[in-house]
Design a protein around this nucleic acid. Sequence first.
RNA 1: GCGAGAGUGGCGGAACUGGUAGACGCACUGGACUUAGGAUCCAGCUCUGGCGACAGAAUGGGAGUUCAAAUCUCCCCUCUCGCACCA
Length: 864
Amino acid sequence: MDERYNPHEIEPRWQRRWEEEKLFRVEADPGRPKYYLLEMFPYPSGNIHMGHVRNYTIGDVVARYKRMQGFNVLHPMGWDAFGMPAENAAIANRTHPARWTYANIDTMRAQLKRLGFSYDWEREIATCRPEYYRWEQWLFLRMLEKGLAFRREAYVNWCESCQTVLANEQVEAGQCWRCGRAVRQKKLWQWFFRITHYAEDLLEYCDRLPGWPEKVLTMQKNWIGKSLGAEIRFPLENGGGEIPVFTTRHDTVCGATFLCLAPEHPQVLELSRGTPQEAAVREFVERISLQDRSAKALERYEKEGVFTGAWCRNPVNGRRMPIYTANFALMDYGTGAVMSVPAHDQRDFEFARKYGLPVVIVVQPEDRPLSAEGLEEAYTGDGVLVNSGPFDGLPNRRAMEAIADFLAREGRGGRAVSFRLRDWGISRQRYWGAPIPVIHCPRCGIVPVPEAELPVVLPEDADLLEGGRSPLPELDAFRRVPCPACGAEDARRETDTMDTFVESSWYFERFCSPDCTTAMFDRAAVDYWMPVDQYIGGVEHAILHLLYSRFYTRVLRDEGLVAYKEPFTRLLTQGMVCHETYHCPEHGHLFPAEAPLEGASRRCAHCGREVTIGRVEKMSKSKKNVVDPGALVERYGADTTRLFCLFAAPPEKDLEWSEQGVEGGFRFLNRLWRLAADWLPHLQGVSPYDGGLEGLEEPLRGLVRKTHETIRKVTRDIEERFHFNTAISAVMELVNTWSAIEPGKDSSPACRAVVRLALETVVRLLAPIVPHITEEIWSALGQEQSLLLCRWPSYREDAIERETALVVLQVNGKLRSRMEVPAGLSEEELRARALADETVQKFIAGKPVRKVVVVGQKLVNVVA
RNA sequence: GCGAGAGUGGCGGAACUGGUAGACGCACUGGACUUAGGAUCCAGCUCUGGCGACAGAAUGGGAGUUCAAAUCUCCCCUCUCGCACCA
């Protein structure tokens, strides 16, 4: 072994060997227990960033660890390759999205390989390839047949700069999740997946996913947003018809004094027609629909509305109620109409006060009686019904039941459930996506592309148009097709493409049989590998990707294609990678390298001015607080990079990047290397010590014990909670203990055997974390087989037992002394020894001992 | 506003079911080796008082339960994340 630790020489060498010997390749093997470890596949944006490195390092450690535990581990990698950045880049660089994407994939694959991740590269997939998306199109047709895919005209979230529609899940605080531009409402014909069909099931199963973080499940539950309530239909005063309303407070129905319809509600314009209000309503509706979402969010407390000119009757007490249209009523939720009870709902209250509408109290709290005139805010608590005719005197909770029954009897409504979850809009007016396989025929309507004609290949010779518009609608070669049903020449192919979240909703199944040409996947392979045992990725996908995948899996199941309902048994959401931000008064945000440390402060490398050190924030290009993994690997190697990612914080927490911390990791590996090199000449041909503690003297005895204790600790830390940081520190402790023994000083066979055991253990425990340096030391020890094929070490109980115990002595709960006693003393014995202790005596100072608490072999507390 | 989570040395972070607070690492200080070292090795390192043994205080703040609280309960403060007119 070389004297110097040189990662740049050893790392590529081992990577080559792993690849040549195909050590990462796996096959389904029903005779062996499987473990499917998956990390969220990346969008091929051009370069691997620190977030990827962290995510994939965590995954790689688990994959390698499980492999050493004897599992048949599936650990694949691929590319979420469709999407808008490719189009933007294509325009900016005058290239084609496909060329840009494939070039990025090549770069990023090389970067991943350089980090030594144990992927089975023969299973690599890119979702933009027709062999992949043809099966997505195939399933789309099945969904179409079943009504799970459908088309309707709807108000959709429209992003002007992306020139496309966004799903509700893709709108964050009124802004586009991708570019940040304010989203506005636009009415368009769109394709949807009926995810609401599974709302109840998706919600229910949230409680059957014990391996998922509580936080993610809570987010999903809130997103699905089930509420129990009632539907109440309000008959219109003039002529027929009624307006259905969803409410969770049907107990307050007698306090409803007016109705509010969403401005987009189909009946709004109809109701106002011919009334003096017609013009005012039209103007209001127009104004509100032009408002974008963020403007609406900002004006959240500015309630406004207009009387439509129409009236309805309260179906319970017959009260005559004006119908308004109001900006706070959402077409998206419930029925798009609200019964307004100003006394018991804050929004309705504000609205009523603004427009001078009546307030009627129907729920009286027991402690303080309310009056309609004196009311300063809505009362939303419980109480007893008043002003409610036959329901007066009922506690409001019970009144809910009674009123629901009443409504059902009268044919005016009844119990109802409402979900917040909307159907998933999957149409994108984009080019770089999977084509939706249907044809519009003027005679036959929507005609599915015949299965034999799949895939509908995205034409790769198209050039993008100015503003990023999709070329597909103008590409006759693509768009003009004869109708498959009637042969009409003037049929037109659908030019919308699918949301890229569709591709990522089933890629984990495709990994099981990536080359399958006859179906989405090979059933036997999926039966063996799926579901994913451990999924790892960022929390940012807590709703979008994870909910869509759960939905898609249900579709596959109902199609009889898979046997399970949930795709991911365990989920780990890793924290973000953060870094300090640097800001120069003249040059703005600076990269870490542009703000070198000078003593305690930092100066701008361009102008020498002092740099303000900002808060620690998520690494982002715009703030320039990024560290390039490539540069890091070049400087320290892959092992150091991996080590620091794992050591700096437990995986679920945010990681604060620190140059000095990386340096520390590098130092540890150097130290391990040197120690190994120093000992190696003494360990040739020596077998590792395999006994218990008998017959060993200190310090060897201590080292053997520490070795076995470390195996136990590291195994638990990885197995139970993926706490690699504490696992690594345990190994560091073992190395510290070992390094106290000087090489060559004690040449006894026992010493050599014990040290060999310690070294081999360190190497095996660190193998999943820093695979290259450990392989190198392992082979220098004379081992011919790769560490990858080596089993995870196990510990001996009889090497961990201690013959003495350290017992802590407290007086009145305060630590006063300690004593070393032979292991296995009785409580009586411990109590006696504790009371006899000099320091304890001093602190009880003659006071009577009231109580003595003995805790195991660890602690005695004397209460005096 | 609603929901979830988190506050521990100069810093990142340890502390299993309440039982030695600060493992491990970084930074810092002193020393050794050295032409030199930002290399390596040894020692120290929560705060206050004391030469010292030692004593006192301390896990965001305040109360409480307990022989014993970073850990459990209640109130308050701060921060992060998610949802955001959801009827």
